[in-house]
Design a protein around this nucleic acid. Structure first.
Lengths: 87, 87
DNA sequence: TTGAATCAACTCATATATGCGCTATTTTTA
DNA sequence: TAAAAATAGCGCATATATGAGTTGATTCAA
């Protein structure tokens, strides 16, 4: 079978041009969450977003939007600027 | 003709649940940009994003992602946390 | 007035974030 | 070890961010 280099499902092959940013934000968020003793489920509930979304963000799989960042910050009782203060 | 309340083009009718956030971030960005004496075109060029995107963000039309925020911050020679320090 | 610069406001295609449901795996706890 | 809790990692539908154009309005300078 011929391999398709431009396969549309990508599979850990092609990454976002800002993958490092997403990875490091994900790690940062996970650290903040655990430091507060929250589970992904608790954070998701407080932020009113799906739990699957929290997991995807922490694993650096998605490029989170400012409105989701805001909901997460509020759920963790912190300011947006502190949530994105990493690296 | 019957009016479709759920019209897909929305027309200043339905807004994002975080519209206020998007509006105020847009104003904030515009202020920061002008304070630096940059045009939308210059910012777009430096951040390597389309000029149309800069306009849409400043007008609060879109829910910008963290990677775009990062590119904009870099283009304005500032840190991400300072870019989202508003309200 | 004429031209240049700036920005608003659209169209369109494509990629992807979000939201939801589900199962499998891993980790923690009893 | 066994059960429970937490997380990973899918699949899918829908909404929307991004990227690349175009046109028109406005402002400002020559």
């Amino acid at each position: 079978m011929i391999q398709n280099v431009c396969d549309s499902d990508f599979g850990s092959v092609i990454k976002n041009r800002n993958q490092e940013l997403l990875d490091s934000f994900g790690s940062h968020l996970r650290k903040l969450r655990k430091h507060r003793g929250m589970s992904q489920e608790e954070l998701a509930y407080e932020a009113d977003i799906p739990i699957s979304q929290v997991g995807r963000i922490e694993r650096g799989e998605i490029n989170v939007t400012i409105s989701t960042l805001y909901l997460i910050a509020k759920a963790m009782n912190m300011e947006l600027k502190d949530l994105v203060n990493f690296r």
